[in-house]
Amino acid sequence: MNNFEQYRRRFLGGALATAGAAVMPGLVLVEVAHSRAPDEPVSSKNRWGLLIDTTKCATGCNECVTACSKENGWTQKEVYSPQDPQWIRKVELTHNSTGAKHSLPVMCQHCEEPPCVDVCPTGASFKRDDGIVLVDRHICIGCRYCMMACPYKARSLVHEDLNDTQLARMPRGKGCVESCTLCMHKIDAGDNTTACAEACPEHAILFGDLNDAGSEIAQRLAGHASREIRADLGLNTGVRYTGI
């Protein structure tokens, strides 16, 4: 190989590398922005979450709770017993000194560092690659350690037989712990929303992919102040709140 040939090869190699470096970020961006298709496996490309605008959330409105109950087959009641499971509840807040009032839904916050997963002795509490925190009903032994560890009181034990309330898409079980699944069956079907977000008449609940810089949720989080409940614990929750 003569000198010219060597120079030509180096030049072409360099040009290709430069072109590649220029195109790659675009390819990566396309990859990140890609929302998951139903037949695609769950991966950490996505991190699903909710952004709740408390300024739109009205006291007395329970549409999100009703929708969650219908979607997942747990029983909504006018007055609950302390043993009844509640996957989502409306919490009314009054500021101790100013008297300012807020109303907002609280459910599993789908932490990046979930204390329930840390303490679970069998690994029944687990986090999917896309950030959804779940309970594997096949290996949950009902020890309730996760309920002791959860800072959000998001989990419930099923205290009695579930004779007629179960749905095929959301199997539940007496003696096992359960909580919000972020409507994973809807996400897995490619719906890209949750029952609570769909049902909110004020569109106060926004569902989306926190990893997708182009998504509405990521842009709203980037542009507005938001907070996590018990941010002091450093759990990096997937559910965020604005307006409080």
């Binding site: 997963v117 303490v119 069998t122 690994g123 949950c140 032994i141 309730r144 350690y145 096992c176 712990v177």
Partner: peptide, 25 residues
């Protein structure tokens, strides 16, 4: 007292190294 006492034996093979309960087994 477990909600699913019949599954207690699962703790023997499904070990979670971050769980104090697992350590206690």
């Amino acid at each position: 007292d477990l909600g699913r006492a019949d599954r207690a034996i699962i703790t023997a093979w499904e070990v979670n190294p971050t769980s104090v309960f697992s350590w206690n087994v």
